[in-house]
Design a protein around this nucleic acid. Structure first.
Length: 264
DNA sequence: AATGTGCACAACCGCAATTTG
DNA sequence: GCAAATTGCGGTTGTGCACAT
């Protein structure tokens, strides 16, 4: 019994990649493109598992990869994003150009995680907790302490945006160009520069079009999604009105007229 | 110089989601 | 609709290096 292995282990190289293997993989992908990882090793003449090839390419050989020297700014951003997203390394990496999920995960596990927990010098525990909390707290009652996903207790979906497991729900939504704040701001403080108001013109999901007013780069909210018709508005607590079902979203990438959200 | 210890990082593993036939 | 294949992700392990003893 047992699970079928992803590829036969016999006759395959394991461990560190050699320069020659790297050359073979890079030249093959340059010629044929990425994908078909399962059959790539055979076609490229590599004695490696397809998953291993994919990992090697994505983490080390792909053009534009930055290695090492994580700057203070990047460090700060990782901490903030970890506070928002938990251990969803691929999402965090997506906001750090040139960085890979594996590198960020390693960096967190060996360095940043300890720093945040106050186990090593440098940044104080208080400093990092405050940093993360300042981003997350909007969707959490003030009585509840900030929490990272490295904590064992599973977060309540009602109170915390932090999940331990990534969900693949990323959607790219066409939106109107940024414009002045709408009157339907639900009392959001005007100086809340990081916050966003999302106006949901109509549902359902196959043609979701939202008006967006933001000069921020991040949005996190968790909300019950209520109602069926009419405009939907994200209020100060991140509450959406205009559909039904529980939802959580993080604005990933404002890019021109498109805004990329992850829906959880 | 030899050995022990801790750290950082590359790579592997298993699971889940997604795609394909 | 279902099963198999593929892809993506996060957790964990193995290894090499630097430093201490």
């Amino acid at each position: 019994m047992g699970r079928k292995p992803c590829c036969p282990k016999e006759g395959l190289n394991r461990g560190a990649w050699t320069a020659m293997e790297d050359d073979i993989l890079v030249s093959y992908i340059r010629k044929h493109g990425e994908g078909k990882w399962g059959s790539l090793p055979k076609r490229a003449g590599l004695k490696r598992c397809g998953k291993s090839c994919r990992l090697r390419w994505l983490n080390y050989l792909r053009p534009g990869i930055k290695r090492g020297n994580i700057s203070d700014d990047e460090e700060e951003l990782i901490i903030r994003l970890h506070g928002l997203l938990g251990n969803r390394w691929s999402l965090i990496a997506g906001r750090l150009p040139g960085r890979t999920d594996n590198e960020i995960k390693n960096y967190w596990n060996t360095t940043l995680g300890k720093k945040v927990r106050g186990e090593v010098g440098g940044h104080s525990r208080q400093h990092h907790q405050a940093t993360a909390a300042s981003t997350v707290v909007r969707s959490r009652p003030s009585s509840e302490p900030a929490r990272t996903s490295s904590d064992a207790a599973p977060p309540s979906p009602d109170t915390s945006p932090v999940r331990t497991k990534a969900l693949r729900c990323t959607a790219r939504l066409p939106v109107a160009p940024p414009r002045a704040a709408s009157p339907a701001s639900h009392g959001r403080p005007p100086d809340d520069a990081e916050a966003a108001e999302v106006r949901q013109d109509h549902l359902p999901e196959d043609d979701m079009s939202i008006d967006l007013d933001f000069d921020m780069c991040e949005l996190s909210f968790l909300s019950p999604w209520r109602g069926q018709d009419g405009d939907g508005v994200v209020g100060p607590s991140g509450q959406f009105v205009g559909g039904e079902g529980d939802m959580e979203a993080l604005l990933l990438e404002p890019a021109g007229d498109d805004v990329e959200f992850a829906w959880f």
